[in-house]
């Protein structure tokens, strides 16, 4: 029930993200003479922001950067996690040590703070921020995969594969990998939710998307100054961020519970 509801919310966000040009063709149209107006004025259901842009259209258009970046972050960090984590967990030794230290180093600081520092110093821009977040998210994925691989390695099927003389690369990515997929997939969704919050936080601080781009975090930053004139300019994107992140989290929880049960049943 909850899972279905979350899936519906996410599907709606995905439709907005994919069909942005069709659904919100006037998102960036400015009407400086009109300026800020409240809800319902001149056909603007949720009013406008300081540039006279329609809040409803802008919010619909913001779905794209709310979904695309977080998915890229989660997938990118998953790829690094699976590669490094599998090597570290299966081979052990120096690779394991280096991967462990790399994770220690990045986990010693709050990731949002690190992202703020690196994105601010190295340069601003949506995809730069996405790249920074991939690097910052990967340590926990490396740890997760490493743990799962280390749990599989002493099992009889791997022992026998080794005795049969199968190449290590093949053991790692053909024999072990399928068995850690459930954990990785469940974690992927939780990472999407975290990345959505992190990316919108950076945009909120003016480090993510460029000024003027449709983005919920950016809208919140602009809306902060408009709380008195048109509170919906901040409340609508705020509710959208919370709703979307909650839906992704609920779906992730549901999926990991489902996969847990299936593992127990086996």
């Amino acid at each position: 029930m909850v899972a279905i509801l979350s899936a519906v919310v996410l599907a709606a966000v995905a439709v907005c993200a994919a069909g942005r040009e069709l659904l919100a063709p006037h998102a960036l149209d400015q009407d400086v003479y009109l300026g800020v107006v409240g809800a319902g004025v001149e056909g603007h259901l949720f009013g406008t922001d300081q540039l006279g842009r329609d809040i409803l259209q802008l919010s619909l258009a913001g779905a794209r950067s709310a979904l695309a970046g977080p998915i890229v972050v989660a997938v990118g960090s998953m790829v690094i996690g699976v590669m490094l984590g599998t090597f570290a967990g299966y081979r052990g030794g120096v690779v394991d040590m280096l991967a462990g230290r790399y994770a220690d180093l990045l986990l010693a600081l709050p990731s949002v703070l690190l992202a703020i520092v690196v994105a601010g110093i190295v340069g601003r821009g949506y995809w730069i921020t996405v790249a920074v977040l991939i690097v910052l998210f990967s340590p926990s994925d490396v740890r997760l995969v490493r743990g799962a691989v280390m749990e599989q390695t002493p099992r009889p099927y791997i022992e026998s594969a080794r005795i049969l003389g199968i190449r290590p690369m093949r053991i790692m990515f053909r024999h072990i990998a399928p068995n850690i997929v459930p954990i990785v997939v469940a974690n992927l969704l939780l990472n999407v939710a975290f990345a959505l919050v992190a990316l919108s936080s950076l945009s909120y601080l003016g480090l993510g998307v460029p000024p003027g781009a449709p983005d919920w975090g950016r809208q919140l930053a602009d809306g902060r100054a408009l709380l008195g004139d048109n509170p919906l300019a901040a409340v609508v994107p705020g509710v959208l961020i919370i709703l979307t992140a909650t839906a992704v989290n609920l779906l992730g929880d549901w999926l990991s519970e489902l996969l847990d049960r299936r593992v127990v049943a086996r």
């Binding site: 919050v197 809306g223 709380l227 901040a234 509710v239 961020i241 909650t246 989290n249």
Partner: peptide, 25 residues
């Protein structure tokens, strides 16, 4: 449990702005 999932998902600044709107303004 449902409330805690919402809490974990909601970024502090979004909650903060909504609180500002409701309780301050």
């Amino acid at each position: 449990v449902a409330a805690s999932v919402v809490g974990v998902s909601a970024p502090g600044f979004a909650v903060g702005l909504i609180l500002l709107y409701v309780f301050a303004l």
